[in-house]
Amino acid sequence: MIKGGVLGMKRLTGLVLALMMVGLMTLPVGAQGYPTQPITIIVGFGPGGATDVLARIVAKYSDKYLGQPMVINNMPGANTEISLVALKKAAPDGYTLGTLNIPHALSNILMRQTQYAMEDFKYLANFVVDPGLIGVRADDDRFKTLDDLIKYAKANPGKATWATSGIGSDDHIAANMFEVATGVKVRPVPYKSDAEIVAAVLGGHVDVGGFNVGNVTEQVLAGKIRALGVMAEKRYPDLPDVPTLKEQGYDVVSDSSRGIVAPKGIPDEIAQKLGDAFRKISQDPEFVEDMRKSVQPMDVKILDEYDEYVKVLVKRFTDLYKANPWGEKK
C-alpha cells in the first residue's frame, strides 16, 4: 500500500514535470489551431484561497470550451507580485495565463517599487467582483446601524477598531474611503487573512470587520455577524436586506476583483479566442452554479470591457492614494 503510494506520487510528479516542460518548450505558433496543448494558469495565491478556487473552477470548463485542459501553477508571494512578474516574463503565446487581483496588483504599485506595471498585461476576462461589507458582531448593541457606528466614531475619533486584511488590501482601502466619505476617523488594525478577521470580530477583539461579501455571507446568514452595509452600487442578491452604503448616503464603493490576464503581446486572434471561450464559460449554467456555491460574486467583463474597468480603477485608486495615502512609498 505504502509502496503504491510512493509510486503514485512519483508518477504524479512526473506528470507535473512533463506538463511543465511542455509549457516551456512552446514554440511560437500562430493562432491557427490554438490551443494545441494545455494552458498554464499562474495563480498569485496558494491553494485553497478564493483566487485559487476561482482558477480551478474555470479550469474545470476549459476542456469543454477550448478543447485543452488548464494546469494550475500556484506562485504565491509578495501580494501577487511574484506571479505577475512570472507572467510578464512568459511567452505571449496564449499558453501561459495568470490571475489578476485588484486592488492587490494596483496597491503594490502605489505603495512600493514593483517589477511589473499594469500595462504589462492583456486583460482577458474578469470573473469576480466581491464587494466590501462592513460588519460587527451580531450581539454588539453599540452598533445596530451604520449611523450608530458613525456617531460613535464622531464622539470617539480614532477609537473604533476596524480589522482589515492588511495595508493596501481592499478592506484597508475601504476603511480609508469610509473615513473620507463620512469625515470620521477609525483605527484600522491589519490582520493577515480574512479568517483572522472573522475570528477577531466574533471573539469581540475588534469593533468592526472589513469583510467581503464572499467571505462573510455565511456568518451573516447564520446570525453571527451583523452587516451594516455593502460597498457596492446595488445590494447583494444573497443578502437582500443589507443596504448599500450609497443608499445610506455615503459614496463608498469598494471591492476585490479577480480575473484572468495574459502577457502583453499576445496575438489578437488568440486573445479574442480566449475572450470568447471565457464568455461562453461564464454563461454555462453549471459554471454559474459552481461560482454561486463557492461564493464568488460574478461580474463578468471580457477584453475591452475589462480593460476599461481597470483603467477606471487605476484612476480611482491613484486619486484616493494622493488624497489619503496608506503605507509608505519606498
Partner: peptide
C-alpha cells in the same frame, strides 16, 4: 485546514456556523 477550507468551497460546502 486553511487549505481544506478551499476544498470545502469547491464542493459547494460553505464553511460557517450553518
Amino acid at each position: 485546514t486553511a487549505i481544506m477550507l478551499g476544498g470545502l468551497l469547491i464542493h459547494g460546502l460553505q464553511p460557517g456556523p450553518r
